[in-house]
Design a protein around this nucleic acid. Structure first.
Lengths: 107, 107
DNA sequence: TGTACATTTGGTAATTTAACCAAATGACCA
DNA sequence: TGGTCATTTGGTTAAATTACCAAATGTACA
């Protein structure tokens, strides 16, 4: 694997790393529906505001969301909604794993 | 976020975490083309065999690949090829980020 | 049986991640 | 201006991740 190829995979991995946390996946799902400010998201998620803010900055650094200040609040929205198309396939992996597990425990 | 919902997002995050490493993304791309054994993958990737083996076990634990022993070799293949459909959207995020970066550095 | 090859597993050190608290910054309004 | 709400940033700690080396396990074959 040459260094150029490696850099390309690293760029992809950066995006996936940003998605790879349950709180951030929840945020993505919420933003798919509508813009939300940090305080709204914080209320939905059971965590400190600073924790939610940091999750949002991870998503922002990956280019997955953008923010807009309105009054004292900062609203976040998805930059690339296609990102949620992926979850269908993720779900099918989860379902397949569950079925495999079922089949194994039957014995 | 109730505990059931949280568990669902954690299940998704587990899959994404398994994908979130440049070496594992490379492996996924290779396996999309054809089955490969650990030694073939190790030769393509510049890393120790044990490192590659551990990456494969991460993918296996997530249910993304399955293995089959043939002679002394273990061949890996994708369980759910749809996983690669996602990369198109990931690329579009990367491209958008690059364009944004260009626009910013122009000033 | 002995040797070589393929793979996995265990151990260690360095790095990254994530959560919370506390403090700083910024906006709004009485 | 002073107070309050919204958000971000810095600091600390605990846990997870990754890479490599060394050693164990399994397969094939002379």
């Amino acid at each position: 694997m040459d260094s150029k190829t490696k850099a390309q995979y690293e760029a992809r991995a950066k995006i996936l790393k940003a998605l790879a946390h349950h709180t951030r996946l929840f945020i993505i799902d919420q933003l798919k529906r509508e813009k939300r400010c940090v305080c709204e998201l914080t209320e939905m998620i059971n965590a400190d505001t600073s924790t939610v803010s940091k999750h949002l900055s991870v998503l922002r650094n990956a280019g997955l969301v953008k923010d807009e200040k309105i009054g004292a609040s900062v609203y976040y929205e998805l930059t690339t909604p296609c990102i949620t198309n992926f979850f269908g396939c993720v779900e099918s992996v989860i379902k397949a794993n569950a079925e495999l597990q079922m089949a194994l425990t039957e014995n």
